[in-house]
Design a protein around this nucleic acid. Sequence first.
DNA 1: CGATTTCTTGATAGGGATCAAGGTCTGTGG
DNA 2: CCACAGACCTTGATCCCTATCAAGAAATCG
Lengths: 254, 254
Amino acid sequence: MAIAEQPAAPSALARPLTTRLARLVPLSAEETAALEAMQATRRPVARSADIVRAGRNYDGVFVLIEGAAMRYRVLRDGRRQVLNIALPGDLVGFPSCFFDAALFSITALTEAAVSWVPFHHLFALFRQHPRLAAILFCTFSYEAAMYAERLIDVGRRSARERVAHFLLELLTRLQAIGQAGERSFRMPLTQELIGDALGLSVPHVNRTLRRLREEELVTVDGQNVAITDIDGLTAVADFETGYLSRFRIGELLV
Amino acid sequence: MAIAEQPAAPSALARPLTTRLARLVPLSAEETAALEAMQATRRPVARSADIVRAGRNYDGVFVLIEGAAMRYRVLRDGRRQVLNIALPGDLVGFPSCFFDAALFSITALTEAAVSWVPFHHLFALFRQHPRLAAILFCTFSYEAAMYAERLIDVGRRSARERVAHFLLELLTRLQAIGQAGERSFRMPLTQELIGDALGLSVPHVNRTLRRLREEELVTVDGQNVAITDIDGLTAVADFETGYLSRFRIGELLV
DNA sequence: CGATTTCTTGATAGGGATCAAGGTCTGTGG
DNA sequence: CCACAGACCTTGATCCCTATCAAGAAATCG
């Protein structure tokens, strides 16, 4: 497990957590510095390598710096549920790492890089920068809202609605970190994983995507996904436009 | 909306949040006092009255003091998904209240009482008691783990497994706050709501419960639920015994 | 004690799983 | 540069779990 860690290159892309939070609230120089410190180390992770392995014990969390990752659980008989997709700037290892034995595994979906943040460091940050603590706290609202939405997907929406919703959510999230165009993005998941995220079988994901394609709502070419008719797809998905952006942290923290 | 608020009676039951956190980590006198202050006001809520209404704007959250509540979303066509069940000591209004317009509604399932905690108060607490902030932070791990489990339920488990898992989770949570016996508890939900929580129809919840009864795994008498065969039901549910209790906060905060 | 709720059970239908098999793409080694 | 293996995608046929529709029983409540 001894893996080389090099100091990070001091570019904007190299500190996605800072970028993400700064977009929500103006940060002081000290706060920025504290966040940078959290992203100072860099550990490369190969595609489909585990970042966190269920059952192990961790003394900290990770910040995903680049690439994508998924948190999931495999049941005894092999069924798998993907719980969420982490993108650059996300804290991964939450909540897994807060338990004696990590509850879930986290695996890189692409070549990726993470920063290691030991708990004592995280909690020191809470002590020294309570405002950052509050911001991080609020950030979890955002994440919790996505879980809720996924739960609604899987519990009460049809396959068609689920897939539509999933595509729009990914588009929105990728746009927020500058990794998607106006209407298109690169899908980091295979159809198998989409199925495991949405509680569907592979053939059914495939058929559902085909149907959406035939209705000219989306275009799929390899990993490239383009939403041909955003309004149409939004209607199908019952997607709350921008539910992910209607945040009030700024107002709350003044 | 102007509702009388009286000072709380100074009993142990009256401050379930304090009790819950104190069980995780020893609290200092100041920390205890700060928590008490969060639970100082009391607002009664009638059964099936809304505590938070989707679409409105709130400047704080609530602590559920007594009773039970649910967070849910209703889709345009009437389908409903129950997102979680709040029990005494839980913060309700998270994440709903952090958005401009609350994302979800929260309704009392029983006669209930809540305390109002304005954001400025919550964030002042973060400033003055960073350790409490860290504890609350960790507490959300616990909640996040339950969401994940619910997602696995709905995405990848059969109706039988879902219901079994749900019963065991409720038992565990109610025991943790001293509101359940060794193997029995009072179910705060109707079968309709169980269905809406687990993504099942009412008739199917009913049939599934009947089957579990016939197999002598559970006993149901009105609202009283008893788990006749805990090991059996645990096997059916693939329930990680005590996944809700294997927490490490104590160790982390020293 | 009448009126809602809530629970229960049956009959039918459909959405999506499962099983199966072929096609395509990508990378790798000869 | 080609052949091959493995991963991934695609499509079809069949089946089953669970939804839906329907209607009556029980319980709860004003």
